[in-house]
Nucleic acid binder design. Structure first.
Lengths: 250, 250
DNA sequence: CGTCCGTTTGAGGATCATCAATGTCCGTGG
DNA sequence: CCACGGACATTGATGATCCTCAAACGGACG
């Protein structure tokens, strides 16, 4: 639905990264000059990707692909939030990951997608044909290496996710989730309030607990004065010390 | 689509890979000719890695590196089993992953290891200096691409791990673990018995449950006639149907 | 043959899932 | 602008499951 503005506009080379050109962000293997995430793509690499990719804007709830479907494209998130999930025989749903700005998704296995991907918010994505991307990567070591680092970064995210889910206490898991959301934003642009774009139900499916437990845990955090919720999609850390303690106290 | 799939186009070498040369195994993005894992490295790539890498044999329990240590090397598993884990403030330990033949580990974050790595069994490894590897990858797109696929594969493993851990029933989680071990071996070389090299305690730390719960779950599997354990390190699936049902029935 | 570490087994208590009902937000349309 | 509807979220009560604490058992190794 809504395949509007699929025009692959060649971005002017003088535009800032992220707005009009594909961008990746990850953490280096080796010592980084400045600590933390680094802009990975050079100007020319962005230009190259722009040439290969199609920029698409999609409304919330759009399904990008389904589990087991033949994989045709890889996506880079420019703006908005994506979730990937798997529906289980029991009817339960497990959210495998949330993807944010500069994340990659759609890496298939044997030519088939392993999860379903759906937009949580309105999103802007870069779509690259798998064939094209693979061919390019095999020829461009630098670009390839950036992808390697990016996927490595997502691997570590997944490992942290695993640790979070393995916790048995509900409030701790929800706290870790908020912590994750908070650190999704660049440290510089981080504000006191945490935006929570997804529903409680999505949170529950990501954290491997029931929707009710999430609700109760959020209530507990609020009641104990650690976090304040304004509406359902905004949170604010009131007591940083106790919050961090909860997050760390696995 | 992905009709092209020349990724595994490597001349069958006379020496079985893994014994004398570094090897990687993963699943392609695109459609593979034969389903399942594929030998990824060409003869020349193996030679190249052999030149860069040091082959080391280490006894069980050897610690390869510790969490937060400055990262100097990346490892390829040739033989044996490795575990990576993180110790939590509470004193609990979470096993992040088990690494088997042809797996990679030791990919650092900002020059620092994020987990501790320890040999579960006697192991044979290839150790490559991080600097050297990075330099090589930046120059060799093909090799780089193989690493990308390998890490992608490990990412999916981690995602499955997350789903397994999110289960609430003990027997199901243990069943999934056995299933994972079974599929670690190549389909061809797979026998009726599953070798379980790690301790119950390691299993518990991997599955996010108590050691006692693992023990009880194993007992339940045995009592219900689904799995037979011979000693603590060997299992055999007796009732494949019910076993698969348990694994899938999330 | 005895020790030691890992494992098994048992009882009690805490936590979360489930079922069910009520309450709230938000977009839609009048 | 307000009223309405439906999806989402909160709250309550009950039961199942697993964790914790504690003790007995078993195999590996000297």
């Amino acid at each position: 639905m809504a395949t509007r503005s699929k025009a692959a506009r060649n971005a002017p080379s003088s535009t800032p990264a992220g707005d009009t050109a594909p961008s990746l962000r990850a953490v280096l293997f080796g010592q980084a000059e400045g600590r933390g995430p680094v802009q990975l793509l050079s100007r020319s690499q962005q230009a190259q990707l722009t040439h290969l990719a199609t920029r698409v804007r999609l409304p919330a709830q759009t399904i990008l692909y389904r589990e087991d479907a033949v994989a045709s494209a890889v996506y880079l998130v420019s703006d908005g939030v994506i979730k990937t999930f798997r529906d289980l025989p029991s009817g339960k749903r497990r959210v495998v990951a949330f993807l944010f700005s500069q994340d990659i998704f759609g890496l298939a296995e044997n030519g088939v997608y392993v999860n379903t991907a759906q937009a949580v918010t309105p999103v802007t994505l870069y779509r690259v044909q798998t064939d094209t991307l693979v061919e390019t990567l095999r020829r461009d070591p630098e670009l390839d290496f950036q992808f390697l680092m990016k996927v490595t970064h997502e691997l570590r995210q997944a490992q942290r996710h695993t640790i979070a889910v393995s916790r048995r206490d509900a409030v701790g898991r929800v706290a870790m989730f908020l912590h994750m959301l908070e650190h999704q934003t660049d440290a510089a642009m981080r504000s006191a309030v945490i935006r929570v774009p997804m529903s409680r139900s999505d949170m529950a499916n990501y954290l491997g607990m029931s929707l009710e437990a999430v609700s109760r845990a959020a209530g507990a955090l609020e009641r104990s004065g650690i976090v304040a919720f304004s509406g359902r999609h905004t949170a604010r850390i009131l007591d940083r010390a106790r919050f961090d303690a909860l997050v760390a106290a696995l």
